[in-house]
Computed example of a mutant assay.
Amino acid sequence: MPKQIKKGLALALVAMAACANALAAYPDHPIHLIVPFTAGGGVDIIGRETAKILGEELKQSVVVENKPGAASNLGAGYVAHSPGDGYTLLMASGSLAVNRTLFKNTGFDAVHDFVRVARVAQAPSVLVVNSKSPFHSLKDLIDYGRSNPKQVSFASTGYGSNQHLNGEIITSDGDFQAVHVPYKGGPPALTDLIAGRTTFFMTVPAEVFGFLKSGKLRPLAVSGRTRMTQLPDVPTLLESGLKDEGLGSWWAVAAPKGTPQAVVDKLSNALMKALAEPQVKQAILGLGMEPAPLDAKQFDAFFLKQVKEYAGLIKKYHIPRQ
Rank of each mutant, 00 (worst) to 15 (best):
V128R: 15
H32A: 04
N73G: 02
C19A: 15
A311Y: 04
T259M: 11
H164F: 04
G258T: 10
D140T: 14
T38M: 14
A92K: 05
F103R: 11
D173Y: 08
I45H: 04
G224C: 09
G84S: 11
P36N: 07
L217E: 15
W251L: 06
G248I: 12
K184A: 11
A123M: 08
A17H: 09
R116C: 05
G258K: 13
Q230A: 13
R146G: 12
L89Q: 06
L242H: 15
T226L: 07
I314P: 03
W251N: 13
A12D: 07
G288R: 15
K315T: 13
S147L: 09
E207W: 02
A15V: 15
L220W: 11
G75K: 10
S82E: 08
V234N: 12
K266Y: 01
V79L: 09
K316E: 09
F299I: 01
S93F: 10
S137T: 15
G312N: 11
A121E: 02
G8P: 01
L9K: 00
V264S: 14
V253A: 06
D175Y: 03
N166R: 10
K273C: 01
P2Y: 11
V179Y: 14
D44F: 12
R197C: 00
K315E: 10
G94K: 08
V62E: 04
A10S: 15
A51Y: 02
L127Q: 11
M16W: 00
L127R: 09
H29M: 06
S240A: 12
G215N: 04
V128M: 08
S172Q: 06
L90G: 03
D143E: 15
V79T: 03
Q122E: 11
G196I: 13
V253R: 05
N130M: 13
K6T: 05
G69F: 14
L237G: 00
P232L: 00
L238C: 07
I5D: 09
K213G: 03
E168M: 14
M16F: 08
Q298P: 01
I284S: 00
P124K: 08
P232A: 07
G69A: 12
